[in-house]
Design a protein around this nucleic acid. Structure first.
Lengths: 157, 157
DNA sequence: ATTTCTTTGGTCAAATAAGGTCAAGGCCAA
DNA sequence: TTGGCCTTGACCTTATTTGACCAAAGAAAT
């Protein structure tokens, strides 16, 4: 598939590739350097960080200004201590909105717990089943569906 | 008849031809480009998508607005599985009791559309999610969950 | 030690670039 | 002649890109 990609998408992929190379220590970039590499204004980098590397999606971003300034990006590994399934239950909770659900899917995708196609089907089923529900109820339904579908994929054969 | 074709039919055929070329990954289009190609208003594309590429017909359509926006169309192959899916939707309906659900699972198991392990996980999730619900409501919840989980298994990768 | 300069990064709002919705009107076959 | 598609366009929502202005941290000068 020929992906239609915005500048933001390109920068996102670039950073994720760097993260894959870098180990658990995370990675450090200079905002201006990245901006020059992609021939864009520096604040574009902040936009990418805000929308694609949020803590909701499982990233930690720290930065420092002034001489020798930097931006450090850290990808949080899902907690293995209790098992991915119970982590998922915790994360979803009683109710979950579409944004949080999407963030969770992206996170599982990033860590290869989920295939792209499964993610697409899940999104579509969530949308289909909640489309004409009152928001308050939709959150609970979404939580139930997401929980069931993810656990099924991870526990089933 | 086979000879008269509305604009909608032309666009439908065009998209299906593109889907045939594209592999399993699905395809991406820009709404405005397609509209220009067929010299129609962009919302015509939405009409075609809604009427010809619905999930009932076995397609998933995702889209994104804004810069770098796109419409992504995914055909859920293969045909016989699509048939099973629509049969499953029919069988489940708005609401389903535990007995009917079990019967459905057994049928799918018998025909090897479902693994034993998946069936076990599905039973346990159904029980877990409906155990303290009023029977009337439980039926609907069960229907939703069963529908989503089965379609996910049959369509996902 | 303080002040000032320089180097970074941060914020926010406007401009731009998609796509979505809905309802009114058109067209055609039963 | 009417009921059900199809077509169109006015108006809406969302995502991205850009730039002007702000804030912090270290370096240099006093």
């Amino acid at each position: 598939m020929a992906f239609i990609s915005s500048l933001t998408d390109h920068i996102e992929r670039y950073i994720k590739a760097l993260l894959d190379q870098a180990g658990h220590g995370g990675l450090e970039i200079r905002r201006t350097e990245l901006a020059e590499l992609f021939e864009c204004v520096p604040s574009q980098i902040n936009y990418v960080l805000k929308t694609r590397f949020s803590s909701e999606r499982g990233y930690i971003v720290e930065s420092r200004r002034g001489g020798g300034g930097y931006i450090r990006i850290l990808r949080l590994e899902p907690q293995h201590r209790q098992g991915i399934c119970s982590w998922i239950r915790q994360t979803i909770g009683e109710s979950i909105d579409m944004g949080e659900a999407e963030a969770l899917l992206v996170r599982l995708l990033d860590h290869n717990y989920l295939s792209r196609k499964d993610a697409v089907v899940i999104r579509s089923l969530l949308a289909e089943e909640t489309e004409h529900l009152k928001p308050a109820h939709a959150g609970k339904v979404r939580a139930m569906l997401l929980r069931s579908m993810l656990i099924l994929l991870l526990q089933g054969s």
